[in-house]
């Protein structure tokens, strides 16, 4: 590692390259762990830093990413590259203007974002979505650790509302080029047919790129939970409350609310519960706050799926609860330390 250190020190000493220090810092930090402490969330009580933390999330996403490439072809990789490039440009511009480090959070956003898109999304929409998400979801609030909403979800929300036809009707069944408007949830909504669970687990149905191969998501999610990178309380309370509310709801309104196991396996619930809701920046850091967060997400998801015009409610419920995160933490702390 010594020659690398020497090379970096030499680059630092060149005065001409001073405006580009954030970029060099990023390279530096990828090789050598930084010595400074985090000022804002995520706070970590361990000897891992933000970068390895984010790296663990990327490793956990690998099964779904590889499955997406196998299912939908190399176009998936093109989408990921475009996502990193477009979001990276926004990120680098802000780092240069603010003269700060390039923030690691982006490495996760860049890969989480394309995985929640339909496999036929045009590349320019990927670019618009991720740029919008990083800009309005994160940078205008002050960068990683200060963002109230998950940037990937903000981007996804924006293009869902901006391009409704592309984002809701152009799904593909894996290993075929046929375009279909049907996902398991929309099939249920129109004809009350339940897609076989084994098809859902193996990803033989329409859906976003990263969410269809559910075994891979469960494996990656469990890796996150056991390595304590993601908090189990949020994932478990989210999935558990969807189960409970769907169970009650299905008994009360069998024509409106789908049965519980189907609710858990269909749509983006597993992906959202493991990778989106657990984002340490936008979810509560108090224990009670985490339980409330997960349960409220579950309730909202079941309600939106069953009673709104949209077929999927995971994205909306997580963004809505992100908005309540600061007040949840505040309430929990003020009750706990009330005199």
């Amino acid at each position: 590692m010594k020659p690398v250190r020497k090379l970096l020190d030499y680059i630092y000493s060149i005065k001409l390259l001073k405006p580009f220090h954030p970029v060099i810092d990023a390279v530096d930090a990828a090789f050598f762990s930084p010595s400074e402490l985090t000022e804002v969330k995520p706070h970590i009580l361990d000897n891992i830093d933000l970068k390895r933390y984010m790296f663990a999330v990327i490793i956990a996403l690998m099964p779904s990413t590889i499955a997406a490439v196998v299912f939908y072809g190399w176009y998936v990789l093109a989408m990921i590259v475009v996502s990193y490039a477009a979001g990276g440009i926004v990120e680098v511009i802000f780092a240069l203007i603010r003269k700060k480090h390039i923030e690691e959070g982006f490495f996760v956003t860049g890969i989480i974002f394309p995985l929640v898109l339909p496999p036929t999304t045009p590349l320019w929409i990927v670019a618009v979505g991720v740029a919008f998400g990083v800009f309005f979801g994160k940078e205008v609030f002050g960068g990683t650790g200060r963002n109230p909403f998950n940037p990937a979800l903000v981007g996804r929300l924006f293009i869902t509302i901006a391009f409704p036809t592309i984002m809701t009707t152009f799904w593909r069944v894996p290993f075929s080029d046929a375009i279909t408007a049907a996902t398991p949830l929309s099939i249920y909504k129109t004809s009350h047919t339940i897609t076989p669970y084994i098809d859902l687990l193996l990803g033989q149905c329409g859906g976003s790129m990263g969410e269809t191969f559910r075994i891979g998501i469960i494996v990656g999610g469990l890796f996150l939970l056991f390595s304590k990178v993601a908090d189990w309380k949020i994932s478990i309370s989210y999935i558990g409350s969807v189960f409970v509310f769907a169970l009650i709801g299905n008994a009360l309104f069998p024509m409106k609310i789908a049965p519980p196991v189907f609710q858990i396996l269909a749509g983006g619930l597993l992906y959202g519960a493991f990778f989106m809701a657990t984002d340490p920046v936008t979810s509560p850091f108090t224990k009670a706050g985490k339980w409330i967060f997960g349960i409220a997400c579950g309730l909202l998801t079941v309600l939106i799926r069953s009673f709104s015009g949209y077929v999927e409610g995971v994205m909306f419920s997580i963004v809505i609860m992100n908005a309540f995160t600061p007040i949840l933490d505040h309430l929990v702390l003020s009750i706990k330390y009330r005199r």
């Binding site: 045009p122 929409i125 924006f158 509302i161 901006a162 391009f163 409704p164 592309i166």
Partner: peptide
């Protein structure tokens, strides 16, 4: 050209 529906709405 794909219309950005959100731009036609107040948000």
């Amino acid at each position: 050209w794909e219309n950005w529906v959100i731009m036609a709405m107040a948000p």
